[in-house]
């Protein structure tokens, strides 16, 4: 297969992404009053983020045990309404801690 120039790939990737985001925002200027649609739009962000997180996050670190530890830390911090940054950093710290424990304990077993 002939390889295209990088610029073609860049234009296609960015163009599709932009059009998908831009068209609804520019075309829909009226206020939607339908209660079902309003409710649907209310739930959408939480549903989308949930589907993107589970189960993909379990595979995000290359090791399911460390990922579960990181996600558990994130869940606890989020439950207590910590900021986005705190939760994200906490999840990374949890993964690092789990990696450290495993690399010290596993060789001893």
């Amino acid at each position: 297969m002939r390889e295209y120039s990088f610029w073609f790939y860049l234009i296609v990737t960015a163009g599709v992404t932009y059009l998908v985001r831009m068209l609804p925002l520019v075309l829909i200027k009226k206020k939607i009053t339908n209660r079902f649609i309003l409710s649907f739009l209310y739930y959408i962000p939480y549903a989308v983020l949930s589907v993107m997180t589970v189960p993909a996050a379990l595979y995000a670190t290359g090791n399911m045990i460390t990922a579960v530890v990181g996600l558990a830390v994130a869940l606890v911090l989020a439950w207590y309404r910590k900021s986005l940054l705190t939760v994200a950093v906490g999840a990374v710290a949890g993964v690092l801690a789990a990696q450290a424990v495993m690399s010290f304990i596993l060789p001893l077993v």
Binding site: P45, M52, L84, A91
Partner: peptide, 12 residues
């Protein structure tokens, strides 16, 4: 790699 999911969790 887990950071972005931490952010999602913090929102949901």
């Amino acid at each position: 790699g887990i950071a972005i999911y931490g952010m999602f969790i913090a929102i949901v």
